[in-house]
């Protein structure tokens, strides 16, 4: 894994998930507190500030009437029901903790579902930068992280999931994915281990 060919994909670091007044804050609160996902991600970004690693955010947001969603099920249905991630709302904005790194982060819009590749120009950007390794951080572990991870794997990328920079709905789910699901197609590392492997 070389920094130049590595991209850190930040998924769902938006107020509706991570801000204490976010609409879905309670949805991931327990797990994010346990993993200290935000604090660890901030620390990671700080450490990567001078590196060649690409940092890309793929925020999710919808129009006010959620016209992008057709017969949504599961979490997407929940998102629509509670009115989360509406375009131009505070809930859909990047969390304030990541604001200092805004210049470092390339924001790729268009994500409307779980998979960050769907509806976005993510793959084109990765190819343009000759990225081979994808590192995933953010929420929700069992949904967007896993979906994006599998999609990246299917696209031939070397996938890494950061155990202490991701958050599930609860600690049980977080541990289950880190220990049982991700190892099927990716490696799981802590942020410290990642920095070590990047030589930072």
């Amino acid at each position: 894994m070389t920094p130049e060919q590595t991209a850190l994909i930040l998924i769902g670091f938006q107020n509706d998930y991570f801000a204490s007044d976010g609409i879905l804050y309670r949805f991931i609160e327990e797990s994010s507190k346990a993993t200290q996902a935000v604090a660890n991600t901030v620390h990671l970004l700080d450490a990567l500030a001078q590196s060649a690693v690409s940092v890309i955010a793929t925020p999710i947001f919808f129009t006010a009437n959620y016209e992008e969603l057709v017969d949504p099920v599961g979490i997407l249905k929940t998102i629509q029901e509670v009115g989360a991630f509406q375009m131009d709302s505070r809930g859909s904005e990047m969390i304030t903790e990541l604001e200092p790194f805004r210049e470092q982060i390339l924001e790729v819009p268009g994500k409307r579902g779980f998979n960050a590749f769907t509806g976005t120009n993510l793959e084109g950007i990765l190819q343009q930068r000759q990225i081979q390794s994808i590192v995933l951080a953010g929420a929700v572990t069992s949904v967007c992280i896993d979906s994006t991870g599998r999609s990246a794997h299917e696209r031939g990328y070397e996938v890494t999931v950061l155990s202490d920079c991701t958050s599930a709905r609860d600690t049980f789910e977080q541990e289950f994915y880190i220990e049982n699901v991700f190892p099927l197609y990716a490696q799981t590392l802590s942020s410290a281990q990642l920095l070590a492997s990047l030589g930072s």
Partner: peptide, 23 residues
């Protein structure tokens, strides 16, 4: 790739439901 993505979304939904049961 569109098929991939559709499958991916489907798998995620399946997993999500499985997980719900498990949860």
């Amino acid at each position: 790739m569109a098929d991939f993505d559709a499958n991916n979304e489907l798998h995620t939904q399946i997993q999500y439901r499985l997980l719900n049961k498990l949860s």
